[in-house]
Amino acid sequence: HNLTITQGKLFFHYNPKLCLSEIHKMEEVSGTKGRQERNDIALKTNGDQASCENELLKFSYIRTSFDKILLRWEPYWPPDFRDLLGFMLFYKEAPYQNVTEFDGQDACGSNSWTVVDIDPPLRSNDPKSQNHPGWLMRGLKPWTQYAIFVKTLVTFSDERRTYGAKSDIIYVQTDATNPSVPLDPISVSNSSSQIILKWKPPSDPNGNITHYLVFWERQAEDSELFELDYCLKGLKLPSRTWSPPFESEDSQKHNQSEYEDSAGECCSCPKTDSQILKELEESSFRKTFEDYLHNVVFVPRKTSSGTGAEDPRPSRKRRSLGDVGNVTVAVPTVAAFPNTSSTSVPTSPEEHRPFEKVVNKESLVISGLRHFTGYRIELQACNQDTPEERCSVAAYVSARTMPEAKADDIVGPVTHEIFENNVVHLMWQEPKEPNGLIVLYEVSYRRYGDEELHLCVSRKHFALERGCRLRGLSPGNYSVRIRATSLAGNGSWTEPTYFYVTDYLDVPSNIA
C-alpha cells in the first residue's frame, strides 16, 4: 500500500525493539523526510534493546553428524571492536523451508527459537588472519532439518551509529543413524509349514526405512522333555500350542467401542483428552525405555581390526524358502538304536541362519518350516543398504507352526516275539517326523474274553527296548493296539495285532 503524509511529521519514542533503520525507511515511504526535528525521533529510546544489523554474515563451514552440527561463519568486528559482546545463534526444527525470524513471537518477546549466546573469538592483530567464530550444536535429532541463523550482539553506541551483522536463515539436516526397533511384532501360524509375521514401523526411523531383515531359527525343545518319565503317576503330560491366527481386521481397528449394538453396526467412541494424553505418555515412556535398553543392555560386537582377528559373527547367506525346513542338525536320541526319531534339535552355532529381506511392506510369510516346531524370529529395521547396512537392534518374537495331521501315527506293522515265561516283546517304529517329539506310547492289549488293559511306555523305555515287553501273560489269544502321544496330543491307534500265548508248562520236552 502507498502511504503519503502531505502535512505533519513523524514522532517515535520509547520503541526499544524498533531499529532506527526501520524508522528511516518509514520517513522515505511516507514522504516526511526532512520535516522531523532532532528530538522527534529519539536516538536513545528507539532500538536500544534490539540488534540492528546492516551487514550480512556468511557461514564459512558446515559439518553434520547424526546428532551434531558444527558451524563456522566469517569474522565480524565493528569499528570499535570492544562493542562486540558476542553472537546469538538461533535454531529450531523446520520440516519445511518457510521459516521466518519472527515465527511464534508474542507480545512478551518470546519466540519459538532456541538461542545460544556465543563469546567472540580472540581478536588477531592481523586483519587478514582473524579467527572464524563458530559453535557445535549438540543433542539434535537424527535425520531432522533445522533452520539456523546467527547475528551479532553489540553494545549501545553513544554516537548512535547503527552497526551489526546478521546471516540469512539456512537449512541444515542432520545425518541418518540406526533406527529404533520395529514396533509390535506379531507372529502367527496359518499352516503346519508357515508363519505369518506382521509389525509396525519404528517410532524413530532416523532416516528413510529402506528394508527390513527377518531372521528365523528353529528352537530346540526343553531338555526336561527328553529326561522326564511322563508315565509316572502324578506327572502331567506336557503340551505345546501353536500360535493362533490373526483376529479379523475389524476387531483390530483402534479407537473402536468394545460393545456392539445388537441391531447392527455401531460407531466408534472418540477417545477423551485424558485417554489420548495417557497414550502419549505411555508411548514416550516406551521410547525412553527402549533407548535405555539399547544403550545399557546391548553391547556392540567388536569388529575385526587390522591384526587379522576374525569377526566372530557368522556370515549372512541367503537361502531359498524351500530350504528352511531342514535348518537344524538332527541327532538321534540314543545312538545305539537307529530307529528312534531325530527330534532332539541342538543347533550348531556355526550354522548360517536363513533370512529374508523385506522391502516396502511390514509383513512376511515364512514358508518351508517344520510342522509343530518353535521358531525364534528376529526382526531388524534398516535405513541404508549400501555401502553397508545400517540397521536397528533386533526385536524378537516366537511362534510355533501348526501340527501336521497323521504325523504322530505309527507307520509300519507292530511285530512281536514270544519268549519263555510268557513274555512277549512288542516292537514298532517311532514316527519319523512327529509333531514336536514323542513323549510316550500307549499300549492297549486284551486277552479274548477279558477286559482291555493299558500300559504306558516312556520315551526312554522305548529307546532301550525298541518297544516294550509284556510279562506274566496268561495263555490265550491276544490283540494289541499302540498309539503315540506327542507334544500336540495323541496320534491314531494302530491296526490290531494278534498273537497267541501258550502255557509254557505244557511245552513238550526233548528229553527222552
Rank of each mutant, 00 (worst) to 15 (best):
P244T: 08
D503G: 07
F372W: 09
R400N: 05
V324N: 09
R481T: 05
E279S: 09
P496F: 07
N435M: 00
E442Q: 06
R318M: 05
N295S: 14
A335T: 13
K317T: 08
S304C: 06
P244G: 13
H416V: 10
G489I: 10
S243C: 05
R400A: 06
R390M: 02
S398M: 04
F355H: 12
P300N: 04
D250G: 06
E221K: 06
R447I: 07
I276Q: 15
P312S: 12
V297Y: 12
K278W: 09
T502Q: 05
A330H: 14
P332C: 06
V214D: 00
Q252F: 14
S398P: 07
S223Y: 12
E362S: 08
N360W: 14
E290A: 14
K271M: 11
F499I: 15
T494P: 01
S283F: 14
V324Y: 03
S458L: 07
T502K: 06
E451L: 07
G322N: 04
Q275I: 11
E362G: 03
D323N: 12
R286V: 11
P338C: 08
H211P: 01
C391E: 07
A335P: 10
F462G: 02
N339D: 11
P332E: 15
K271D: 12
L487Y: 12
E217C: 11
A336S: 12
A381P: 00
E260G: 03
S223M: 12
Q252I: 08
L235Y: 06
V297C: 04
C269A: 08
G374W: 04
V414Q: 03
K361G: 08
W216H: 04
V501N: 07
S392A: 02
C269V: 07
D229V: 05
I438H: 02
E221D: 06
D385F: 08
D204P: 03
A394V: 06
D222C: 13
I209D: 09
H416R: 05
A463K: 07
H425S: 14
T494A: 04
Y396T: 14
G436W: 02
S243F: 08
R313L: 03
P238S: 06
E452L: 09
G264W: 07
D408L: 03
D250H: 07
S248F: 15
V359L: 09
S344F: 04
G322P: 12
L235F: 07
S203G: 10
P270S: 07
N490M: 05
I438P: 02
R218P: 12
F372H: 13
R466G: 15
V480H: 00
S392V: 01
T307K: 14
E452A: 11
D273F: 14
C456G: 01
Q275G: 10
T340G: 08
S257Y: 09
Y498K: 12
A263T: 08
C456W: 01
G476M: 00
N435D: 01
K460L: 06
G322T: 11
E465V: 14
K278G: 12
N490G: 15
T401Q: 00
T415M: 13
W216P: 06
E265D: 13
E420Q: 12
A381S: 11
N255Y: 07
V324E: 03
H371K: 03
R446L: 14
H425I: 14
S363M: 02
D291C: 07
P205H: 05
R286S: 09
Y504T: 04
T307S: 08
G234S: 10
Y504A: 08
F226I: 06
G264C: 04
S486D: 01
V296T: 08
L455R: 08
S274F: 01
E282T: 08
L379V: 07
S474I: 10
R400S: 09
E362K: 07
R319P: 11
L505F: 12
F462P: 01
P312Y: 13
F285T: 04
Y500L: 11
T347H: 12
N477K: 08
S257I: 03
V424L: 12
F226H: 13
V296A: 13
H211W: 12
H352Y: 05
E227S: 11
Y445I: 01
R447N: 09
Y292M: 07
D503L: 04
S268Q: 14
E227A: 08
Y478N: 00
P354E: 09
L369G: 02
P475N: 09
F355A: 12
E420P: 11
S262D: 14
T373H: 09
L280F: 14
Y445D: 00
A263Q: 08
I276E: 11
E282M: 04
P403R: 07
G368V: 06
L455V: 11
P332A: 06
V393T: 15
S320N: 10
E362A: 11
T485S: 12
G412H: 04
L470R: 01
G368W: 13
E356T: 14
T210P: 02
R286M: 11
P312T: 10
P270G: 02
S320L: 12
L364M: 12
G368C: 04
Y259S: 13
R353S: 13
R318N: 12
E451F: 14
C468N: 02
T328L: 12
P338G: 10
V393R: 15
H454P: 05
Y396H: 15
H254P: 09
Y292S: 08
P431I: 00
N477T: 02
L369E: 01
P508L: 07
R301A: 07
S248A: 11
G476H: 00
S315E: 12
S320R: 10
T307R: 14
L487W: 11
D385L: 07
G489E: 01
H461K: 10
Q380C: 11
Y396G: 12
E388R: 08
E378A: 10
D222A: 12
E249W: 08
C267V: 12
H371T: 15
D506L: 08
S444R: 04
D229I: 09
L437M: 04
T210L: 10
E356C: 11
L437Q: 11
Y396K: 07
R286C: 11
F246M: 09
G436V: 13
S305V: 13
W242R: 07
S268T: 15
F419E: 00
K302R: 10
T343D: 04
K406R: 07
H254I: 07
G449F: 13
A463P: 04
R483W: 00
A405P: 06
I209V: 12
R370Q: 14
T497H: 09
C269I: 13
D204Q: 03
K317I: 10
G449N: 06
S474Y: 13
T340K: 13
P314K: 14
E221M: 15
A336W: 04
P431L: 02
E247P: 10
